[in-house]
Design a binder for these strands. Structure first.
Lengths: 332, 332
DNA sequence: TTGAAAGCGATACCAA
DNA sequence: TTGGTATCGCTTTCAA
């Protein structure tokens, strides 16, 4: 494999001049530039990016920590982050934590060893005091998940409002026995879930409906979790008439299982999802849901991260809060 | 940021000794080892991975080229590749080609500049003669998509068989007017699509059913593409009674649009999907489909790639062909 | 406009 | 068992 020295020798010039040509620096005569280009061509030379990184002390790579890629929510978030990153020539290292605290720490170490210029966290598995120390080694940006104690830039959604409008919608539809399904695993430090639940309780309080702990169900945030949720609901002595789930996948699972049990949606049980994923429009009945602008928070977090890396983050907000929107369909 | 030299100085030892401790080399006395570890601790030292990469000439990073992450098929493929890669300490660079030939070439250049140790291609956008030259710069493995002219290791599925069993199933259900929906964009060089179509035609031939070109529809491989497909079918003077689509997403779109047009599935139009994604079980009617072992081909391709990088690819097959399976549900 | 050489931070050979 | 030093491939200052 040819190196810059080989090119320099063939062109009869110095490595410095070759480097200048590679980096389009001024003060290289057209004549020498031509010589260098010919030599690069002849030797099939391509600059070694690792050497460039060592020298420049930057990797132009961002690690994005997601719990799991096959959850469409995170696939879309990554898509949003990637679009903007790619435009500016950055690459993304995908790091699936699989809801594991150890893996999260393992990936955070990428910052210490300078394998990446920064880390975007889309979920939080460890207590914040275990994480915050890493920001000394490079920029951390929170995207989606957040943490009140965190002193790092954050792009998030107004989950309290989301929980509130969803619940209020169900109440306005006449429901008073409203179940709330929240995440089971790996969300021990999720402010997101807590805030959404807060919104749920705020709405209930506003209409003087007491909170019933047995109506709060913890399950996995996937289709199976949705099915389990419905089964748990059916086992209650007094059944809820509506359920507010944490994602469209869960809502889809609830609906599928409800139909399998001969229940009509929304007549016997109303269901509301979260996210507004494609699936919400595809199953029957179509799912009433809270639309999250996923791509937008991805774009924003990505831009924010790169601005910080390149130290041109003058105009960025430190904590930006985007709004949510209720999409009414047939499941409520 | 502390370097190995700082650690050496504080410990009163040489950089070589510190390096030995970092890499757990033998021939370091426990006493010195302790000194080094204390110094590393005191200085919050972490080895710079870029320097290690430059020295070792390996990145332990693999680039995976996918058309688009938000297509669940590719999310699962990535998940499969990532699981095995992570176990062996490799990282994944996600590269979305977005069906663009330019982007594919751009990402293939990661090999020339040695940013990654190898590239896994899950789709092919350019003609193979544009791609093959890159394999001189590092290993390329084909996973899912394939190419007969390619002289690179390949992990793929038996698409001819998939096209065949799906079509045969429709024929056995009594259909003779069977449409076939294939990809519209960016699949110009997709052997995968061609083979599947070959299986479709083989089945037709076996039952002496003539191929009708107007029944072969080109559309996007997503939900919208499915809706468009159905509209195109409705515009034909003689309508097919069944359709074989290239993915469950397309099948879902076809079904959604069919219902919107007052057609019953499968009575008025039978639909068969491909992949067996979660959505296949969630929409009504549930989708008959061809199940692809996506995770498995991901695992296999990932292992194959790392074995090649580490030159222990003795026992790997060069071209492994995994089988497909028909899952009969309610849409046919 | 060009080149010599120091340096980025680690590893490994060869000596001691 | 330990250390000196060349080396990986590139960039950038300083001098010419």
């Amino acid at each position: 494999m040819a190196t810059i020295a080989d090119v320099a020798k063939l062109a009869g010039l110095s490595r410095a001049t070759v480097s200048r040509v590679i980096n389009d620096h001024p003060y290289v005569s057209d004549e020498k530039k031509k010589l260098v280009k010919e030599a690069m061509e002849a030797l099939h030379y391509y600059p070694n990016s690792t050497a460039q990184k060592l020298r420049s002390q930057k990797t132009e790579t961002i690690a994005v920590l997601v719990p799991i890629l096959t959850n469409p929510f995170f696939a879309y978030l990554l898509e949003g982050i990637d679009t903007v990153a790619n435009e500016r020539g950055y690459h993304l290292l995908v790091c699936q934590t699989r809801y594991s605290q150890e893996k999260e720490i393992y990936f955070l170490n990428l910052l210490k060893t300078k394998q990446v210029d920064g880390i975007i966290l889309t979920s939080i598995e460890n207590d914040w005091n275990k994480i915050e120390g890493f920001s000394e080694f490079g920029p951390i940006v929170l995207c989606n998940e957040f943490e009140t104690r965190a002193n790092v830039p954050t792009v998030r959604l107004d989950q309290v409002y989301g929980g509130y409008i969803g619940t209020r919608h169900l109440i306005e539809k006449g429901h008073t026995k409203i179940a709330y399904c929240k995440a089971k695993y790996g969300k021990n430090f999720s402010k997101l879930t807590m805030e959404r639940e807060l919104g749920y309780k705020m709405a209930l309080a506003e209409y003087n409906i007491p909170v019933r702990e047995e109506f709060i169900i913890r399950e996995d945030t996937d289709i199976e979790g949705g099915k389990m949720t419905l089964r748990k609901m059916l086992s209650l002595k007094e059944r809820p008439t509506a359920i507010f789930t944490g994602s469209d996948m869960v809502a889809a699972g609830v609906i599928t299982e409800a139909k399998a049990n001969g229940l009509r949606v929304p007549e016997d049980i109303a269901v509301i999802g979260f996210d507004d994923q494609p699936i919400a429009e595809m199953i029957e009945p179509q799912i009433t849901t809270i639309k999250q602008p996923i791509l937008e928070i991805g774009h924003k977090a990505s831009k924010l991260m790169m601005d910080i890396i390149e130290k041109k983050n003058q105009e960025n907000e430190f904590d930006s809060l985007l709004s949510l929107q209720l999409i009414v369909r047939a499941s409520t």
